[in-house]
Nucleic acid binder design. Structure first.
Length: 156
DNA sequence: GCCAACGTTGGC
DNA sequence: GCCAACGTTGGC
């Protein structure tokens, strides 16, 4: 199976790319949307994802991460003290999943949403379409390549 | 801070 | 099964 590509949104005020570089590996928890969860469950170790800063200045892609652990139950759904607690999720059949990610490459500067909108490959992405709030977005190989090229980077 | 757009909930 | 109300996302 070929490597797949994704885009993961995070608010840098809460957890940004620099935070991931600091901690090394991070469980991508708190996703509470079925479409996004299904994408998480489709991820394989070795897949790569664009790390996107939302609600930021500027908004855009800050770097590339790799998936280092495939989907497993998101523990916060069972944590009554967490804002991500889901009292209706059963331990025997967890509703929400998470993956582990690790940093792969920091962009020299954020590839802004406006710049992504200027790339033809990205015209069809949910990310660039008005009103879409999906926090885990599938990315096509051409989209991934175009993003790296526009950011002026290549993967090691 | 504003607000458009969206997904989810729950009454019926 | 419908759909109004609600809470949330996320760009600006």
């Amino acid at each position: 199976m070929a490597r797949a590509y994704w885009l993961l949104k995070s608010e840098p005020d809460v957890f940004g790319y620099a935070d991931l570089e600091r901690v090394g590996t991070e469980p991508w928890n708190g996703v509470r949307n079925y479409q996004a969860r299904n994408s998480l469950r489709a991820m394989k170790v070795g897949d790569q994802a664009l790390f996107y800063h939302s609600n930021a200045n500027p908004t855009g892609v800050a770097g590339v991460v790799k998936i280092v652990r495939a989907a497993y139950p998101d523990d916060l759904q069972f944590d009554a003290s967490s804002p991500y607690h889901d009292p209706r999720s059963k331990a025997a059949d967890p509703r929400w999943s998470m993956v582990d990610v690790a940093p792969l490459l920091a962009f020299p500067q954020v590839l802004t949403l406006g710049a992504l909108r200027g790339l033809p490959a990205w015209a069809a992405s949910p990310l660039t379409q008005k009103g879409t709030r999906l926090s885990v977005v599938p990315v096509t190989p051409p989209q991934f390549r175009a993003a790296l090229k526009a950011a002026g980077v290549r993967l090691p």
